[in-house]
Amino acid sequence: MHPFLQSLLGGLLLGGAALLLMGTIGRTAGISGIVSGLWKPTAPRGWQAAFVLGLALAGGAGFALFPSRFDAGDSAGVPVTIAAGLLVGFGSRLGSGCTSGHGICGLARLSPRSAVSVGTFMAAAGVTVFVVRHLLGGGQ
């Protein structure tokens, strides 16, 4: 399948997952919000844990069936990976969402806050990649 079609199909699947969550328990499929909700549960009790378990199960099955969907060579080094994780965790909470909550759910609701967030994090990520790859000459 053409990579564009794969991505489109993947987008439809995760968009469908968001619809399912909203349609049944009225919650937004924003991953950073769900993860931080693990330690402050909202009704129905345990839904965040169930969702994260689903993500992990998908990952486990994917790793067994389609190992090529995982990067074999871990590209970034340990210090960069730790820094990236800290920034992603801190920033997604401070900014009330990430690529899923703002990028899919919020944009689909035409939320101005999400539009500002997505424009900002896309630009920041693009500039970061540019600096790392083209100015510092590191990267892949």
């Binding site: 993860v35 993500l55 199960l57 190992p67 801190f90 920033g91 997604s92 900014g95 900002t120 920041a124």
Partner: peptide, 30 residues
């Protein structure tokens, strides 16, 4: 401010590692 600065910080982290929260959780299973 928190919305914009949060997005800036998140974006830098995303650009450094190539992971956002969902894919990171899925991939961590491997």
């Amino acid at each position: 401010g928190p919305l914009v600065w949060g997005a800036v910080i998140f974006g830098i982290g995303w650009g450094l590692g190539g992971y956002c929260p969902g894919p990171a959780l899925v991939t961590a299973a491997g």
